[in-house]
Nucleic acid binder design. Structure first.
Length: 256
DNA sequence: ATGCCGGGTCCTACCCGA
């Protein structure tokens, strides 16, 4: 089973990229982030023609997540459990498919709106860990994947790619990421590639791609039973060489 | 150490991303 995640930076700008990628890689499930549109604007028909059903948690202009799957699935949550009812940010989708629970996230960046914006990120991470804890306690086979907006360690960014104190690497951010690992979850990429550059994002500016000045911020965390089935986990750097790419590349996890 | 790029939107100057 192949499960993938991709921050596409607008699905309307990236429909042909995603279609081409689905045909090339043929994942069973693909989570999308930053679709940047409401459900009505999502080009679902183009993916259905390839055998993928779409479910969308949309929002005008900002954020927005979706899932495309060629296996049967059911959406169980369209918002992170525990968030206030009036929180309108589209950042979470949870599905049940193929005997497992899969959560796709677009975790808040935390660099805008000052300390209030950062507090929102930390609160979001606390609630995500709590959601994972509840599911793991019930022995649910679980994958949490998406754009975490977290560089877990100093090996996960190029020197100088971020300023000290950036919300993606502050100690409080990293501690909350580790909290999910302490729950018993496995960072799929680092389980198979413990060291070295495994970047998933390169800024459009300052020739970041050409200099390989990147970040590892898109992740897949696995419950113990899924980690035992882990075959491969890798960012797909090929996509960053195409014309008009997203600033993120897909990450693909394969389970036996 | 922002705003060099590239999305978005009250359509066009400005907000946001990481």
């Amino acid at each position: 089973m192949k499960i993938a995640t991709w921050n596409v930076n607008s699905i309307r700008q990236r429909e042909s990229h995603v279609r081409g990628w689905l045909e090339r890689v043929q994942p069973d499930i693909l989570f999308l982030q930053e679709i940047k549109c409401e459900a009505a604007q999502f080009p679902a028909a183009g993916f259905e023609a390839l055998g993928y059903r779409a479910e969308i948690v949309g929002q005008k202009a900002y954020n927005g997540v979706a899932v495309l799957a060629r296996v049967p699935f059911e959406v169980t949550h369209r918002a992170l459990p525990g968030l206030p009812e009036d929180d309108a940010q589209a950042r979470y989708i949870e599905v049940v498919a193929g005997g497992l629970t899969a959560i796709g996230i677009y975790l808040p960046n935390g660099n805008s709106r000052g300390e209030e914006g950062y507090a929102y990120k930390l609160a979001w991470m606390d609630l995500l860990a709590e959601r994972a804890r509840v599911l793991l306690e019930a022995d649910t086979p679980l994958i949490v994947t998406g754009d975490f907006n977290v560089c877990p360690t100093d090996e996960d960014l190029s020197p100088g790619a971020l300023t000290p104190g950036d919300a993606l690497l502050r100690p409080e951010t990293r501690a909350r990421f580790r909290k999910m690992l302490w729950l018993g979850m496995t960072d799929a990429i680092r389980a198979l590639h413990p060291h070295g550059r495994m970047f998933t994002f390169w800024d459009y500016q300052a020739a970041a791609w050409e200099r390989d000045s990147g970040l590892r911020i898109d992740h897949a965390l696995l419950s113990a039973d899924l980690a035992e089935r882990l075959v491969s986990a890798m960012p797909d750097r090929e996509e960053r060489n195409l014309a008009q790419p997203s600033d993120h590349v897909p990450v693909v996890v394969e389970l036996a």
